[in-house]
Each structure stands twice: as structure tokens, then as C-alpha cells.
Amino acid sequence: MNLNYKSTITESMFNVSDFNCSTSQQLLKRTGFYKIIWAREADINLTIDSYDFRFSKSHVLFCTPINVVTIDKE
């Protein structure tokens, strides 16, 4: 799943994804975007700014535009 909203007037973008596609994974690695990550169905392994984390099911994480995030595919 990958849903996108883009506004050329405000030069903004909102993207909702389950991160099963490589395009969504690349968005996480870009800076300049706020990122909200929700571990909906299971625990996940994340790398944020080169630090590894285990993120529990049902938790939500907010990242700033300078954070680089990678979600391990399990």
C-alpha cells in the first residue's frame, strides 16, 4: 500500500505506506520530511541515525526531518 497526497501550491506531500515497496523505504532515508512510524501488527527493528532499536507492537514514533530511518524487513 502506498497512498500519496501532493500539493503544488504549498509544495507539500503526505505519504501513507506499509513500507513493502522500495520507493517507500527510500522516503524514510531522505531528510527534510517528518516521519511517523506505527508498529501496527508486530514488533519491528528500526535503525535511526545509525542506532538500532526494537520497536514494540502498537507503539508510535515521531521523527524529525533530520532523522534517517530504516525499517528491517522481517
Rank of each mutant, 00 (worst) to 15 (best):
M1V: 06
M1F: 03
M1I: 00
N2S: 11
N4D: 13
N4A: 14
N4V: 15
Y5E: 05
Y5R: 07
Y5A: 01
K6C: 13
S7T: 10
S7I: 09
S7W: 00
S7M: 04
T8P: 08
I9P: 00
T10Y: 12
E11M: 00
S12E: 14
S12L: 00
S12P: 06
S12Y: 00
M13N: 14
M13V: 13
M13S: 15
F14C: 12
F14A: 14
N15V: 13
V16D: 02
S17K: 07
S17E: 14
S17Q: 07
D18C: 10
D18F: 00
F19Y: 13
F19P: 06
N20Q: 09
N20V: 04
T23D: 05
T23L: 09
S24A: 14
Q25D: 14
Q25A: 11
L27P: 00
L27G: 01
L27F: 04
L28P: 10
K29L: 12
R30K: 10
R30F: 05
R30A: 03
R30G: 09
R30H: 08
T31P: 02
T31D: 01
T31N: 12
T31W: 05
T31V: 02
T31Q: 15
G32W: 07
G32P: 11
G32T: 05
G32V: 10
F33A: 03
Y34G: 04
K35F: 08
K35S: 12
I36A: 14
I37M: 04
I37C: 08
I37P: 00
I37N: 03
W38C: 15
W38N: 14
A39W: 03
A39E: 04
A39H: 12
R40I: 12
R40A: 13
E41Q: 15
E41M: 11
E41D: 13
E41Y: 09
A42M: 02
I44F: 03
I44M: 05
I44H: 04
I44T: 02
N45E: 03
L46A: 00
T47R: 09
T47Q: 01
I48T: 15
I48A: 12
I48H: 07
D49V: 12
D49R: 09
D49G: 10
S50D: 13
Y51L: 01
Y51P: 00
Y51Q: 08
D52T: 06
D52W: 08
F53C: 04
R54G: 07
R54K: 09
R54A: 05
R54I: 04
F55N: 01
F55S: 03
K57S: 08
K57W: 01
K57D: 02
K57T: 11
S58G: 05
S58R: 11
H59Q: 10
V60S: 11
L61V: 07
L61S: 02
L61W: 04
F62H: 12
C63M: 15
T64R: 14
T64I: 09
I66F: 14
I66T: 15
I66A: 08
I66R: 07
I66S: 15
N67T: 03
V68H: 15
V68Q: 05
V69T: 04
V69I: 14
T70A: 11
I71P: 06
D72S: 07
D72F: 10
D72M: 06
D72T: 09
K73G: 00
K73M: 04
E74F: 15
E74L: 12
E74A: 05
